[in-house]
Amino acid sequence: MPKFVFAYHGGNTDMTPEAGQAMMTQWRNWVAGLGAAMVDPGHAVGESITISPSGVAQDGGANPISGVSVVEAASLEAATEMARVCPHITLVEGSIEIAPVLDMDM
């Protein structure tokens, strides 16, 4: 079955501890609800940098990544439906970028 990367962008950084705990509970419930389709729940990430031929940008660019996951889904449309109910999209400026994992010899 095809795999897809979910790249999370945005999100609240100024939550109260209680709101943060409530979000983590929603996140864990979402992951559990995906069952075996959640190949790797991934990681939240800290401040990023962007490296390009013109140099290194310390701010992570226009829409820095805030985490990643890998899911299995029958199609991009099926992966999209999984992402539509992810609690991350309820956060301030929360969005999820979805891309298929390409099967390449490395």
Rank of each mutant, 00 (worst) to 15 (best):
V5I: 13
T16A: 05
W27K: 07
V71Q: 00
A37L: 02
S75Y: 03
S54T: 14
G67A: 10
T13D: 10
R28M: 14
P2G: 00
G46V: 03
M106K: 10
Q58T: 15
A37S: 11
T13P: 01
V31N: 12
P87E: 11
V92G: 10
P100Q: 14
Q26H: 05
V101A: 09
F4H: 04
W27C: 01
Q21V: 12
A32N: 13
I65P: 03
V45N: 07
G10Y: 01
G42T: 01
M106F: 14
P41F: 01
C86E: 02
E72H: 10
C86Q: 00
T16N: 02
A79H: 00
S52A: 14
E47R: 15
F4Q: 01
M24S: 15
V68W: 11
V101R: 00
A7I: 14
L76G: 09
D105I: 12
G10C: 13
K3P: 01
D103Y: 10
C86P: 04
W30Q: 04
V5Q: 06
A74Q: 05
I98N: 05
V56F: 13
A44T: 11
E93M: 14
T16I: 11
C86D: 08
L102M: 05
P53V: 12
E81R: 10
H43G: 13
Q21T: 08
V101P: 03
V85G: 12
P53D: 07
S66I: 13
G33D: 02
A19V: 13
P64S: 07
E93Y: 04
C86I: 05
S66H: 08
E47G: 14
Q26A: 15
S69Q: 02
A79G: 12
I89M: 04
D40T: 08
S69Y: 06
D103H: 03
V45K: 02
V31R: 00
E93V: 09
Q26I: 01
G11D: 00
S75D: 03
G11A: 15
V92P: 07
G33N: 06
E93H: 02
M82R: 06
P41C: 09
M82K: 04
G61N: 04
G46E: 01
S48L: 01
I96Y: 02
V92E: 03
A83E: 06
E77N: 03
T13R: 15
A99Y: 13
Y8A: 02
I51H: 11
